[in-house]
Nucleic acid binder design. Structure first.
Lengths: 165, 165
DNA sequence: CCCAATCCTTCACCGCCAGGAAACAATCGG
DNA sequence: CCGATTGTTTCCTGGCGGTGAAGGATTGGG
């Protein structure tokens, strides 16, 4: 995902639009303007004039923050730290988990995705979740259980040391 | 919640500690140093020398971001520093505590939420509050007792021990 | 000031059951 | 035939909700 650059306060409108679309953005703040107060983690700002490296660093941070979301394409699950291939069945399950990345995906929709129109035996889903967990571990993902409700796919929290250039 | 200020890269150690304690912090970046790449929403930085108002603005943003009220959705309790899943019973109790976040929720309404139409044994609520305390500790929340009145759910201020070098 | 009643915290233990894990079988494509 | 994928069965762990009791802390009465 790319990071948009825009001027503040000149492009106030555009900022609102980008916020709506949860599009990461960096505000270039006019030398005379007062900086925006934001709580949105997908937004940052830098006062002009600024060093090129500082702008680069903020763009890069924004990019990483929102690049946290993995992608699934042709049975290949990619994250920041690599990729693994998934068999068809498990790919369909991951697709659902991914569509709710960071939020709860209920058992029902996982079953529907894995076995459309069927009702597989009692713990077949559990077995495949177990296999999925082992498969996605090397690429820094984990599946956490929310008892009686469903499962959450999320990134494992990296150590701060790993973030240093 | 307060925002800690520290020098970068001089206080690298302290930064790691603050990260561990999920304590919001603003790094004051040495004029010659390259800025840190961070994905932690509780961290920000500013290059020295900086306008006072810019520092103020970043501190204020960090403060707001981490003072945000926790949310409860589908049995998942989220705060700035992560989430935990809650069983049904405790979720109902937290719902009430959350509706009065930072203020006193009386025993009566907690009992009504947990056990509608019943009067459970004398200390059942206490037991579950005890379990709740342990459960929400990792996400930086605590429940404080107001004797004879009720209980207050609030954010923990990070332990001083975790902030010492 | 001391004592007793009351409120609160914590612990040990139980029954129940959802979810996790291992072992094995069946199928399929190369 | 071999390895990967998918399904089945079985057993076990650990979470959940509840009880009773011990002990601390606070309050109020004398």
């Amino acid at each position: 995902m790319t990071v948009e650059l825009l001027h503040w306060p000149r492009e106030k409108e555009r900022r609102a639009q980008l916020h709506e679309a949860s599009q990461p953005r960096l505000l270039l703040v006019d030398p005379a303007a007062s900086p925006p107060l934001t709580v949105d983690p997908a937004e940052d700002w830098v006062r002009l004039p600024a060093h090129h490296r500082d702008v680069q660093a903020r763009v890069e941070s924004l990019r990483r923050r929102s690049a946290a979301e993995p992608t699934l394409d042709e049975g290949v699950l990619r994250t920041a730290s690599g990729w693994v291939s998934l068999p068809d069945l498990e790919a369909r399950i991951v697709e659902v988990l991914l569509s709710k990345f960071g939020k709860v995906a209920d058992r029902q929709s996982l079953l529907a995705a894995g076995w459309p129109g069927e009702t597989p035996s009692r713990n077949l889903l559990d077995v495949h979740l177990h296999r999925l967990r082992r498969r996605i571990d090397p690429v820094g993902l984990q599946i956490r259980t929310v008892r009686k409700r469903g499962y959450v796919l999320e990134a494992m929290t990296p150590s701060p040391a790993a973030l240093q250039p």
